[in-house]
Design a protein around this nucleic acid. Sequence first.
RNA 1: GGGCAAGUAGCCAAGUGGCCAACGGCAACAGACUGUAAAUCUGUCCUCUUCGGAGUUCGGUGGUUCGAAUCCAUCCUUGCCCA
Length: 425
Amino acid sequence: MDLIEELTWRGMIQDIMPGTREQLAKERTAGYIGFDPTADSLHIGSLVPILLLVHLQKAGHKPIALVGGATGMVGDPSGKSEERNLLSEETLNHNLACVQRQLEKYLDFSPSLPNAAEMANNYDWFRNMTFLQFIRDVGKHITVNYMSAKDSVRRRLDSENGMSFTEFTYQLVQGYDFYWLYTHKQCKLQMGGSDQWGNITTGTELIRRKSSGEAFAFTCPLITKADGGKFGKTEKGNVWLDPDKTSPYQFYQFWLNATDADAEKWIRIFTFLSRDSIEALLVQQRADPGARALQKSLAREVTEFVHGQAGYQSAIATTEKIFADQSAPAESLSVEDLESIEGIAKFDFPADKIGAGIDVVSFLAECGILPSKGEARKLVQNGGISINRRKIDSPQFSLTGDLLLHQKYILVQKGKKNYYLVRVG
RNA sequence: GGGCAAGUAGCCAAGUGGCCAACGGCAACAGACUGUAAAUCUGUCCUCUUCGGAGUUCGGUGGUUCGAAUCCAUCCUUGCCCA
């Protein structure tokens, strides 16, 4: 099975330029994907492009990860309904460094490999380019008509928000990246999300016109959720790849909580499991959906890929402590259990305040779990708060010293899945 | 520079002098049911609250009025048309 066949089966190909498959079969090909430094960590949305590069490398081709030091200064209008805010140079550089460090984890850069991965930053070739150079050497080759025909541009032209010249130019800047990589790194392939198709074709067009060369591309579909919601969001916001921003436990939980429909699609995209193993899992899932074989494998594979064995182990350990026996009394958790539950928020609370007894509402607000008493009260009234695994049914409920686990902990739950550990001392 | 239109809560969007913290929808959070799914139903959803209320909102600023998201002036932003 060749790369394209493999990716097609996994549901990772949306558009593909004719001849791409033949090119990949013909010779070792360098292919690139651009990553925008919009934040100081990549999130799981970027996982798909990363995986594309990994698949590319596994198939013997050379992956190039491009970070957008220059394009990040412009702002990609694709998929955006409004003009983006520009990032300051300082943030940009910080983000750039972080993103680069993350990318390095997932690809093999060993110089001994014939298809060693490479990192590039388009600021390197834009830094010294003047505006006049750009409009003469790049702008001259592409008509405004061509650029305006792109979906991402047209949608914005039709909308009432309009679009700045800066963002309009974006596709040329990205297009030039491809041209530069084509001429300097013999890079003949660009990949990306399907929203990038317009930008990508500008690149191949530029290569065709400027050096009558031939370049190829394919895109993968944007990841969606069955219910139409945004992929990669939880209550706490984005799911990041950086373990300091999203702990391995939370990361694992994100995948574990996938709906059945999503898990079926995602397991093919986000894991390297073979077709046979996935089909076996699908059969299992249908036979006993409650066991969630799909979600478990999905969560395991992705967590291991991103956070390694150790990260997965700690995620599992926490999951078991929290969910293995929901009805088990909180008292059955040992000090070690409580202390080592990774990924749950920890708070401190002065012991003397509890000595005399304190009502739940004040407690929740004062220790910082909830922002205000009003909010705490509402949640309690809704039945959304449990303490030491027992549901609190009244805002008047009073916390006293004998509730402390091991004389110093209180375990708070908001809803079923959000745990907070309060250290009293 | 001239003409026209628009700017309301995270988003979409109603409201066009008092009954407006502002209809409705989406998103989000919680509850019931489940499988830590989905669907459905229910509650919450500007901030604070001793749950009685209190405070701050409808692009900004000033004004008219007993009273303004709503009227007037001015400024800002955006779009369309003309120059």
